[in-house]
Each structure stands twice: as structure tokens, then as C-alpha cells.
């Protein structure tokens, strides 16, 4: 039975996270700019400047948050199972025992494919946390982790 200590996500996943934040903050800063433009009449140049500033501030906040988010995110493979820790303010730590894993998915998005990353989704028979996700693994690592979890799953009941 393989085990390993605390592991961080791949640093490239932080890039993906920030890139998607860039798009999200772009969209989020649109409506306030429009609202301000409706109430106050000022030149187009200033409007664009206003939009860019709000985008920059939002993204800056996100950038700072993502650093801590990335630091907090780590996973451990124990004898008992996989433990995933995440969250900056609201922290959560899910433990999925090896013999409770029903099946495992590996999914890869277009951005992730660029960096050779994959997302591991563990399914259990539970209801509330029926699936636990672990993103930002190298494709080879994800496959190896899946194989390890499947190999050591000594659950006779093959539902």
C-alpha cells in the first residue's frame, strides 16, 4: 500500500485558476461600470479607465486570494484513504476511505490539457459528499493515484 505526505497541487493549476479569474472579474466589473456611466455623464475615455480600474482592483484581490487558496490546498494519501484539505476562511478536509470508493473519474478541460493537467473525481455511495474532486494533478500522477486507489480497494462488494 502506497502512501505519501502532504502534496501541493501543480503550480500550473494556479495559472489556470488565475486565468479563469481574469475572465470572471472582467465580466463582473462590467455591470458597475455601466451603472456608473448611466448616472454620471463623463467621456468615453474616462469610462474605459473606470472599467479598467475596477477590473484591476477586483483581479488584484483575486490574485492575492488565489495565492492563499493555492497554499491551503493540499492532499495526503494515508493508509486509511485520501485526505483533501482546502479553503482559506472556511476550511474543509474530506477523508475518503480507500474501501469506500465506488468509482473514479479523470476529467481534463481545454486549459488543463495545455498544461498536461487532470482532475480526479472520487465517487462514493454517500449523498451529501457523494463525489470529491481533486484538481490540478499531472495527468500521469492522476492516473497513478487512481490505479493505487483501485488496487488497494479491498471492498468485496462490487456494486
Amino acid at each position: 500500500m502506497q502512501t505519501f505526505g502532504k502534496r501541493q497541487l501543480e503550480i500550473n493549476y494556479l495559472k489556470i485558476f488565475r486565468f479563469s479569474a481574469l475572465i470572471v472579474t472582467f465580466l463582473v466589473s462590467l455591470p458597475p461600470t455601466i451603472v456608473i456611466s448611466v448616472f454620471f455623464d463623463f467621456g468615453w475615455l474616462l469610462r474605459i479607465l473606470c472599467f479598467l480600474t475596477s477590473w484591476l482592483i477586483l483581479f488584484g484581490l483575486f490574485y492575492w486570494y488565489s495565492k492563499h487558496w493555492y497554499r491551503a490546498y493540499h492532499y495526503t494519501l494515508l493508509d486509511v484513504g485520501l485526505r483533501i484539505h482546502k479553503g482559506v476562511f472556511w476550511q474543509q478536509q474530506h477523508t475518503v476511505p480507500r474501501n469506500r470508493v465506488q468509482h473514479i473519474d479523470i476529467t481534463t478541460g481545454p486549459l488543463e490539457r495545455r498544461y498536461d493537467l487532470s482532475k480526479l473525481v472520487l465517487h462514493t455511495a454517500g449523498t451529501r459528499n457523494a463525489s470529491v474532486t481533486l484538481p490540478g494533478l499531472l495527468q500521469a500522477d492522476a492516473a497513478a493515484l487512481r490505479q493505487e486507489l483501485i488496487n488497494t480497494n479491498n471492498n468485496e462488494d462490487t456494486v
Binding site: 476562511f89 474543509q92 469506500r100
Partner: peptide, 14 residues
């Protein structure tokens, strides 16, 4: 019968 175990901590908990 337990499927998985979650440990949670809010800022107030901390």
C-alpha cells in the same frame, strides 16, 4: 456505514 468523513472549520471556529 460511513462513506466519507469531513472536517470543517469556519473563521469563528478558528
Amino acid at each position: 456505514k460511513i462513506q466519507n468523513i469531513s472536517y470543517l472549520q469556519t473563521p469563528f471556529d478558528r
